[in-house]
């Protein structure tokens, strides 16, 4: 039982005839930090809905921590924690009560529930707000409250559906470090996000869904290895008037101080700087034009759509 999640031929057709999932196969290893990506409406939330019992599958098999959801969903649910995309707690309850009640729904004794609620609310920086009505929390606090609520029964598999949407950078980074710690302690995490930098930074394995079909399922390392080129923006120390010819690199001058350079796979940054140095061009700083995963994601989804339209 080394798989946290096994999905076989998962299909979902809604009552209005919309086919959201067209037979997905996917596996997530125990202890993994897994990214489930896809454009809006691709089927990510439907997949998560099925795993958490909020959506009924039409076809296929799902097994969570070795428990077939058709046989014993109760046992599977005990091991699963869900942080949904939308706020779905009672906004008229105090923060602490939201967490303690959730523990009660899992059959956890109130004393233990109170201890755990304190632990997770403290870890997520919400302890001072425990007596506040949930509706008075800021957006970022509400997201953290949902994480605390999802953890109170100490699940082995945690699913986060866009947990950092609308959260400022500082809080997002603190949430990342919290999730990393949680994963290091053994919790398997499945993350959906539109911030691909987040997925690249946190996740070891990745699946991409588009239009109800799994179009990629591999390790982050392998996926990033597929990148044929990467584009960098160089901030030049001295303005230049004309586009320099850099042997082996495609360039584009955005303005006198900003040069865009495409570095093909196999070329090194040392080679780039050697060529730049030879032409007397000094560089103050450089940054990637787009996130590497974002570039790949766009390529994969676009080629999937092209293949589909050709069919």
């Amino acid at each position: 039982m080394d798989k946290a999640l096994t999905i076989r031929n998962l299909g979902k057709t809604y009552s209005n005839g919309f086919v959201a999932l067209k037979g997905i196969d996917m596996e997530v290893d125990r202890g993994d930090f897994f990214a489930l990506l896809g454009p809006n409406g691709a089927g990510k939330s439907t997949t998560i809905g099925i795993l958490s019992s909020l959506v009924r599958k039409t076809t296929g098999k799902v097994s969570i921590m070795g428990h077939d959801i058709d046989v014993d969903f109760g046992a599977a649910k005990k091991l699963l924690g869900l942080v949904p995309q939308e706020f779905n707690f009672n906004v008229f309850l105090p923060v602490e009560e939201v967490v303690i009640n959730q523990a009660g729904y899992y059959g956890i004794d109130r004393k233990i529930a109170c201890t755990r609620a304190e632990q997770y609310l403290r870890e997520l920086g919400l302890w001072e707000k425990r007596r506040e009505m949930a509706r008075n929390l800021s957006g970022g606090m509400k997201r953290r409250l949902m994480i605390a609520r999802a953890l109170v029964h100490e699940p082995e598999l945690l699913i986060l559906d866009e947990p950092t949407a609308g959260v400022d950078i500082e809080i997002r980074r603190s949430m990342w470090s919290f999730l990393r710690k949680l994963n290091a302690e053994g919790t398997t995490i499945i993350l959906t996000t539109h911030y691909l930098e987040e997925a690249e930074s946190l996740c070891r394995n990745i699946a991409i869904i588009d239009d109800g079909v799994l179009i990629e399922n591999t390790s982050m390392k392998k996926l990033l290895g597929q990148l044929h080129s990467e584009t960098f923006l160089l901030d030049l120390a001295t303005a230049i008037d004309s586009l320099p010819v850099l042997d082996g690199f495609a360039t584009h001058l955005l303005d006198g101080h900003t040069l865009e350079v495409e570095v093909e796979k196999g070329m090194s940054m040392n080679q780039l700087f050697a060529v730049l140095g030879a032409q007397g061009i000094k560089v103050n700083s450089l940054r990637s034009k787009t996130n590497r995963l974002e570039q790949l994601f766009v390529n994969i989804v676009e080629s999937s759509k092209q293949m589909e339209s050709q069919e």
Binding site: S53, G74, K77, N88, F89, Y105, Y106, R149
Partner: peptide, 17 residues
């Protein structure tokens, strides 16, 4: 109200029969 606010989902995702 639980349906409207979606907090009925707290119960639905739990193992409570």
């Amino acid at each position: 109200s639980s349906k409207f606010q979606h907090n009925i989902e707290e119960l639905l995702v739990s193992p409570t029969p």
